[in-house]
């Protein structure tokens, strides 16, 4: 038990880069949550309509997808002490989910 702890201590990056990146993903997920909550509030504010509920459900789905990719990345970061770089596909997925959220926002505003 103490052997594992000693090895972890020597492998540990003094700059805590993986931890900081993990927390950055958490913060981004929180920002996404706030945006999704505002989207739900917008739907309720505008009065319930079939389109509104559909777009609202879409926003919740996008939030869930963002949560999943963020969780996937956090687990990858935690798995090893010198993790692999983010893949372009993963980065593009994050950006496209944000973009889709904005499109849903435009649909709700109009």
């Amino acid at each position: 038990m103490s052997g594992t702890a000693a090895r972890d201590a020597s492998d540990r990056d003094p700059g805590l880069q993986p931890e900081r990146t993990r927390l950055a993903w958490r913060r981004t997920t929180l920002a996404c949550t706030v945006t999704a909550v505002l989207a739900v509030k917008a739907t309720l504010h505008n009065g319930l309509s079939a389109t509104g509920i559909f777009v609202c459900a879409l926003c919740c789905g996008l939030w869930l997808a963002f949560l999943l990719i963020s969780h996937h990345r956090i687990r990858t970061l935690a798995a090893t002490s010198s993790p692999q770089a983010l893949t372009p596909r993963h980065a593009a997925a994050g950006a496209l989910l944000t973009l889709a959220l904005a499109v849903c926002g435009a649909a709700l505003v109009l």
Binding site: R27, T28, A31, C32, V34, T35, L38, A39, K41, A42, G94, A95, T98, L101, A102, G105, L108, V109
Partner: peptide, 13 residues
Amino acid sequence: LRTALALIGGGFA
């Protein structure tokens, strides 16, 4: 990406 999300949230607000 957080900046983008904040701008989108600002649009809703």
